[in-house]
Design a protein around this nucleic acid. Structure first.
Lengths: 266, 266
DNA sequence: ACTTCGATCAAACGTTCGTTTTAATGTTAG
DNA sequence: CTAACATTAAAACGAACGTTTGATCGAAGT
């Protein structure tokens, strides 16, 4: 219910008639908002242009006019949020490192800067709220080529910075191990967000009980805050878990031939 | 290349002409094998019936004849693996509890029974190997209704048993907290598996270096083993992490401002 | 030998997809 | 007023989708 009334157009030109950016019609923003929600609810492939444009109450051709294609629409849905998010993440790391004055940061500080920045987006509906967080978590596993290359470009810089910060924060942990655990942490967070209604069924609906009612905004906001409180200790515990003891292969230094080669019947 | 020659049909009737099961044509199995791989590579929606049937070298109508619909095909792809997997999981828990003689199990034992059983499937190509594991990880976030209800039914029993085992293993931890962390662990594992080529790009391809060459079977087998060695300590560390201290809101009461972080760690 | 029946086949079904085209609209500048 | 422009509207495009149909094949069954 009330599916369209929550669009809340900004109308910045109404209070700022001097704006020279009248070319940016609100059709664009309305398409982006609706596409963000529908892509989250149904997935990219299962959401048709006609569903998007009719829900946004715009013409079918509007998407191709403003964005060029359906693929470009999805990328733009992410770009307008990820640009801000990853800039915030870099800025948060900058401030932490400046105030540490050369000393390595604490792992908890790094995780707070990376994951806390994201989870705080889930509390702010004007930044996409939980809708965007869920969409992000679900889309990260999409196998489509253009999505993977898009995310690779958007995340390359921020991941590299945080990786180096973790290397310095945990000098005794092998770098490969840190990369693996960064991988695990990203997965735990993405799934926890994306699956709040998928794995809830699996885990017996107890998360749903804790998440409060299914109201549009306050429920999601509370969920984001509660999720952050639960997730951060888990991630920190996993990151600092005792290392696995290897009988062999701490790193692939020797050009090890594939064990049990056999003749390839491929 | 050589995409079809790796089907390796069994031909059990060739050496066992007494088999009364001639009705089970190998067409069924060939469709399931090919569909499993293509659904993993492209996702469910982006994989067409024509792609599946032509790759399996069967007629287009064969899927509808043997399975009824595309949705039923996906469910059958999972059912033939999940039935065995979850039965193994229940059996592993039964044996652990029988040998514990009433005493609560150790968390590491429970995690090993649940996640180790799955990860060992990744080492056995006859059980689907990493192809099935990746498909499982990616499909768990699919928003389609029939997929969610299917998984809910397949996982209900095993999740409930393991949840209770964790409750008894960690009597001092609130049950809601355990459910959350079970949620996080499932996510970390699923993403780590599903994203071995997605998040690899994000994390800088160092996991790919560790995973060895891109050979079909030995690479995946080695990856599954290495993944298990890395993942289990992480999950255990997260599960046993110190509990978050709540200054307020064990339930949603006031609109709390964002808590000023910066408490010491370690 | 004829029937039966499950399995496979080619061909077509109607629908929906993303995109394009062409015309009409409203606004801005000269 | 008009020319130029950016935006929206309606309609259609060809292609691809999941599914269904009716014929054909081949190996039991009586």
């Amino acid at each position: 219910m009330t599916s369209i009334s929550s669009v809340q157009i900004r109308y910045s030109w109404a209070s700022d008639p001097m704006s020279d950016q009248k070319t940016t019609s609100d059709t664009r923003e309305r398409i982006l908002d609706v596409a963000e929600r529908l892509f989250m609810e149904n997935g990219y492939e299962a959401t048709s242009m006609r569903t998007i444009t009719s829900a946004a109450e715009v013409n079918l051709a509007a998407v191709n006019y403003h964005f060029g294609s359906k693929e470009a629409l999805l990328c733009e849905v992410f770009r307008r949020r990820l640009a801000w998010l990853n800039q915030q993440r870099l800025q948060a790391l900058d401030e932490l490192e400046a105030q540490a004055a050369g000393a390595p940061l604490k792992p908890s500080q790094i995780l707070e800067a990376f994951f806390g920045t994201l989870l705080r987006m889930g509390e702010d509906p004007s930044l996409g709220g939980m809708t965007f967080l869920r969409l992000l978590g679900r889309t990260l596993t999409e196998p489509a080529e253009f999505i993977r290359t898009f995310f690779a470009g958007e995340y390359a810089q921020v991941i590299d910075r945080y990786k180096l910060a973790l290397f310095r924060a945990l000098p005794d942990v092998p770098k490969a191990e840190i990369v693996w655990r960064l991988h695990f942490m990203l997965g735990a967070m993405s799934y926890a967000i994306a699956g709040t209604d998928v794995l809830q069924v699996v885990t017996g609906c107890e998360l749903g009980d804790l998440a409060g009612e299914s109201a549009d905004d306050p429920g999601d906001t509370a969920l984001a805050r509660r999720l952050a409180q639960r997730l951060m200790p888990f991630l920190l515990g996993g990151l600092r878990a005792p290392l696995p003891q290897f009988h062999e292969l701490p790193f692939p230094s020797p050009p090890t031939p594939p064990p049990r080669g056999g003749r390839g019947d491929s």
